[in-house]
């Protein structure tokens, strides 16, 4: 996956970049399956590798093929990125270890969701239960965001169709 990102950074042909992005999304989906996040993996495979590739290709057709060669070597962004990476690596030292059952993420509400959700909602898939019921407001907000983004695209691209 990291190799795909490096290739993505180097690829100057935009069509190649879009295909690489699709591959990257698919790899991400498999990683998510390995991490037991089946719902998320399903979404990533359908959205990342499917729909966004179609949209990117559609947009690519409209804006055309090649990326210009940068005028200067992008040294400053490289240094900046590495610096940010170093800060992140430093901050990572304070995070709990992988698959630590005592990590904060596992000892708050999640345990209650897992214990109570099937009994309270009658839905064995806890992800669905939390998504639609416990965090219903959250999901309503997300749905409205999706709706608004769709409306925004309609507003941006509609004009020419009218004539």
């Amino acid at each position: 996956m990291a190799a795909t990102v490096v290739a993505l950074a180097l690829q100057r042909n935009l069509f190649g970049a879009v295909v690489l992005f699709s591959i990257y999304s698919f790899l991400m989906a498999t990683v998510l399956v390995a991490l037991d996040a089946v719902d998320v993996a399903m979404t990533e495979a359908a959205v990342g590798a499917g729909v966004s590739t179609v949209l990117l290709l559609g947009a690519l057709y409209l804006v055309g093929g090649m990326e210009a060669k940068p005028l200067v070597r992008p040294l400053l962004p490289l240094v900046l990125s590495i610096a940010v990476g170093a800060v992140l690596a430093y901050g990572m030292q304070g995070l709990p270890g992988f698959s630590d059952p005592q990590a904060p993420i596992h000892v708050h509400v999640a345990a209650r969701y897992l214990a109570e959700a099937p009994r309270e909602t009658g839905v064995p898939n806890v992800v669905t239960a939390v998504l639609a019921s416990y965090r219903g407001y959250d999901t309503l907000g997300e749905t409205v965001v999706v709706f608004t983004a769709g409306a925004g695209v309609i507003a941006l691209l509609r004009r020419r169709k009218r004539k």
Binding site: V51, V54, L55, G58, A59, L62, E120, T121, G122, V123, T128, A129, A132, S133, G136, T139, T143, V146, F147, A149, G150, V153, I154, L157, R158, K161
Partner: peptide
């Protein structure tokens, strides 16, 4: 709870399907 979740998911499904399809139509047309 079961009924509520069912209808909420149906609403989410309709919106997402509509938006994704509309996006495709907009870019393609």
């Amino acid at each position: 709870q079961h009924r509520g979740i069912f209808w909420v998911e149906a609403g989410v499904g309709l919106t997402v399907a509509g938006v994704m399809l509309k996006l495709f139509y907009m870019f393609a047309s």
